[in-house]
């Protein structure tokens, strides 16, 4: 049966796959209250276009081949599909109640949290079909996918859990209780550990994925008002960047020791993070300042601050 399911999912992912697109060198930012996506040219760091996308856009991600951009338009209970080249909204498909954060699997499927329904849904964005719905804890939020695609981790914010879901079986392999209001997850380069932020308890937890146990936890209390949200791994695999929320800083951690190395002032309520493919530039969404900051990761300095729409939330780079 496992073989059957995996074959079907593999087939679904494979169907319709075409050659990878040339990157557009654009950064896409969802503006939650402006109902738009800001398009920033990476070489100039200027906004070159603004796309009307629908009500309350939040989660954003690119297809593995870069041919399509997906945006969760939460109040329309849908995902909008945008052509990253022409910037046209190609179509929308229904994606359950209140879709928020999501991740795109290497096979092309979308794993999305339905916050009001306590479930994670799997969609094929080509057809808009819901392939699966997986019950999780209350207020599911962050979705992370391991580098090899074999594990999906979903955070449930109210239940304070990380749900570890194997792919392709879609079996719940573990439920790990972490600090209050877990929001975002990322993986080590080798996929052996995962890191999760907890917003209300203000900490970062590292989980060993061989034993599914917490192996390290660091408080970010040393950074005033730190309410961590997004977390990404640096290109070197040795650095973690954490959006500090109310602290208005990006907090830089040593991925091995979880010690705080530095904190970079950006804008107010920094939530979204995205790293360029070459690892040199980190883009942040600053929800209350209505800006995006660009950090040079070589020296941890902000090299550009870009005005976008009201309440920027998510960010993704096509490079």
């Amino acid at each position: 049966m496992r073989f059957f399911v995996s074959s079907v999912i593999f087939a679904l992912g494979f169907c319709g796959q075409i050659a990878a697109a040339e990157p557009t060198h654009r950064v896409f930012v969802t503006n939650e209250k402006a109902n738009t996506v800001s398009v920033i040219e990476t070489r100039t760091n200027k906004v070159e276009a603004t796309i009307d996308v629908g009500k309350r856009p939040r989660g954003i991600g690119l297809a593995p081949d870069g041919n399509e951009l997906y945006v969760a338009v939460s109040e329309e209970n849908a995902i909008a599909v945008i052509d990253p080249k022409t910037l046209e909204v190609l179509r929308k498909f229904k994606a359950g109640s209140d879709p928020e954060a999501f991740a795109v699997h290497p096979n092309g499927n979308i794993y999305i949290s339905n916050e009001d329904d306590a479930k994670t849904s799997v969609y094929d964005p080509k057809t808009g079909d819901e392939l699966l719905a997986i019950p999780v804890g209350l207020e599911p939020e962050g979705v992370g996918i391991s580098p090899d695609g074999s594990l999906v981790i979903v955070t449930s914010e109210s239940a304070n859990m990380l749900h570890l879901i194997s792919v392709p079986e879609h079996a719940m392999v573990a439920n790990i209780v972490v600090g209050a209001r877990p929001r975002s997850v990322t993986f080590s380069r080798d996929g052996k550990t995962a890191y999760a932020t907890s917003e209300v308890s203000g900490d970062v937890t590292e989980v060993d994925l061989a034993t599914n146990k917490i192996i390290k936890k660091v408080s970010l209390d040393a950074i005033d008002q730190a309410k961590p949200k997004d977390i990404v791994l640096g290109k070197d695999g040795k650095t973690l960047y954490v959006a500090g929320g109310r602290a208005a800083k990006v907090i830089v951690l040593d991925a091995k020791t979880l010690e705080i190395k530095t904190a970079i002032p950006v804008g107010k309520r920094v939530w979204g993070l995205s790293l360029s493919r070459d690892g040199r530039h980190l883009y942040t969404t600053n929800g209350v300042s209505n800006t995006v900051s660009v950090i040079d990761t070589a020296n941890n300095q902000v090299i550009a601050t870009i005005e976008v729409g009201e309440a920027p939330w998510g960010v993704v780079i096509d490079d």
């Binding site: 399911v5 079907v8 094929d124 392939l131 079996a171």
Partner: peptide
């Protein structure tokens, strides 16, 4: 129909 079948299998596996 494929999605429906998959959903049922998934529920069972879950």
């Amino acid at each position: 129909p494929l999605a429906t079948v998959l959903t049922h299998f998934a529920a069972f596996l879950l």
